[in-house]
Design a protein around this nucleic acid. Structure first.
Lengths: 226, 226
DNA sequence: TATCTCATTTTTGATTTCAAAAAAAATATG
DNA sequence: CATATTTTTTTTGAAATCAAAAATGAGATA
C-alpha cells in the first residue's frame, strides 16, 4: 500500500495514472506543488519519467506547468468551472438524446436495473451508495449514446470537475430529487423519446449545478485549508 | 525557412507546436512515423525534448505512442471521425445559441462585417478566400458564446478534423449554400434568437458533414498515396 | 527459392550528469 | 529593526550515456 504499484514497464504512463488519481480524488488538491525529485523518489524512478508524466497531465489540463517554475495541480477559476459545467450539461443532454434512439436492448435492461437498485439507496438515505449508482447510471447512458468520443469527453469532464463537487448528495432532499429526475430520464430513453430525455437530463444536470454552485462560492475557503 | 524557428527556451513546447502544425496542415499525414533521432537532429536538440513533445501530442490524441514501437501520427477510424464530427456539430450549435444571447455589441458588428466581406468571395468564386472568411466567422461565434472551454474545444476538434476535410468548398454550389446558411445564422444571432441560431447552425454543420462524408469514404485511398 | 533461426543494428526508454534559472538564505545597509 | 543586495542552495530543463527491446539482415535449411 505504501509503495505505489508502478509497473517496471511503461513507467511514465503508470506514474501519470497514479498522480491523476490523486488529483481526481482530491488527495492532491488544486494548487498543490508537484516537484520532480520528491515524486521520483516516491516512485523509485529517475526524474525523467516523472517529468514526462507531468507533461502528459499538463496537456490534459490537470496540471499547470510554468516555465522553470515547476508543476502545480491546476486551479480552475470560477469562470472555468462554470464554462466546463455548461459544456458538460449540453453533452449529458446530447448523450441522453442519442441513447434514446441508439441504446441496444440489453443495455436498456441494464439501465432499468441500475435505476431500480438505486431506489433502495434512496430509501435508506445512503448517499455514498447512491453516488456510485448515480455514476453507473450516467455512464450507462454515455455508453448507450454509441459515440466513443462523446463518452470519453464527458467522463473526462466529470473527473476533472469532481474535486469541485465533492458532496453532491449532502443537501437534504437532493437524493430524492435526483432519483425522480432519473425516473423520467430512464423512462424517456426506454420509450425512445430523445427530445424529452435531452430536456430532462439538461434540467437534471443544471439542478445539480445549483447545489454545486454553492460549493464553487466556497472554493477559496476550501482550498485555504490544505 | 529550412531551419525551424525553435526558441532556445521552452524547447519541448516549441517542438510540440511545430509538429502539431505539420500534422494539422497535413504535411505529416495520418500514419506517418515520428522517430526521435531524426526529429531531434532536424530541430538541433537532443532526444529528450522531442520525446517530451511527442508525449504531449500523444495525450492530446494527435499522436499514437505505442510501447517500444515509437510514435506515429494518429490514424482516426471512420467511426472516430464520425463521432468527433457528431460532437462538434452539437457544440457548434451550442455556440451559436449562446452567442445569440451573450455576444457583446461590438462583436455583433464584427460578425456582420465578416459575413458581408465573404459575399465578395462568393461572387468571385474564390474558395480559398471564402475558406478563411468561413473560419473567421465561425471563430467569431465561438468567442461570442463567452465560454472559454467551449471555444477551446471546438477549435481543437476543428483542427483535428481538418486533415480529413481538406477541400470543404470544392463541390459546386457549396460556397453559395454555405453563405446562405451563414446569412440565416448571423441574422438569428443578431436578433438574439438562440433556438433558431442553434437549429440552423446544426443543419449547416451537418450539411458540411455530408460533403465531408465523401472524403471519409475515400480515406484509405488518400492515405495510401503518402 | 522460400522460410526459419540467429546475429547485428537500430530505436526506444530511462538513468546519470550538467548547466542555468529561480528560490532561499545570509549579509549588508539605511 | 526592516529592507535591499549578494551569495548559496535548490530545482528545473536538457544533453550525454546506457540498457533493453524491437527491427533488420545474413546465413542455414528444407
Amino acid at each position: 500500500m505504501g509503495e505505489p504499484a508502478v509497473q517496471k514497464i511503461n513507467r511514465t504512463g503508470e506514474i501519470a495514472k497514479w498522480i491523476r488519481g490523486e488529483i481526481e480524488s482530491g488527495a492532491l488538491p488544486p494548487g498543490a506543488r508537484l516537484e520532480e525529485r520528491p515524486l521520483s523518489e516516491r516512485f523509485g524512478v529517475s526524474k525523467t519519467p516523472v517529468r514526462e508524466a507531468l507533461i502528459q497531465l499538463a496537456s490534459l489540463g490537470l496540471v499547470d506547468l510554468r516555465q522553470r517554475r515547476g508543476a502545480t495541480v491546476t486551479v480552475l477559476s470560477v469562470e472555468q468551472v462554470v464554462s466546463m459545467f455548461e459544456v458538460m450539461t449540453e453533452m449529458e443532454g446530447m448523450a441522453a438524446k442519442l441513447a434514446a434512439s441508439r441504446m441496444p436492448p440489453d443495455e436498456r435492461k441494464a439501465l432499468a436495473e441500475i435505476h431500480a437498485e438505486a431506489a433502495a439507496f434512496v430509501e435508506r438515505g445512503d448517499s455514498s451508495a447512491y453516488d456510485l449508482a448515480n455514476t453507473r447510471l450516467h455512464e450507462c447512458i454515455y455508453r448507450g449514446a454509441c459515440n466513443e468520443f462523446l463518452e470519453f469527453n464527458i467522463k473526462d469532464m466529470r473527473a476533472r470537475l469532481r474535486v469541485y463537487r465533492r458532496y453532491p448528495f449532502q443537501k437534504p432532499g437532493r437524493i430524492e430529487q435526483s432519483h425522480e429526475d432519473h425516473a423520467q430520464i430512464v423512462d424517456a430513453i426506454l420509450r425512445g423519446d430523445g427530445p424529452t430525455a435531452n430536456r430532462i437530463m439538461h434540467e437534471h444536470i443544471t439542478t445539480g449545478g445549483r447545489v454545486f454552485a454553492d460549493l464553487v462560492a466556497q472554493m477559496p475557503r476550501i482550498w485555504e485549508q490544505g
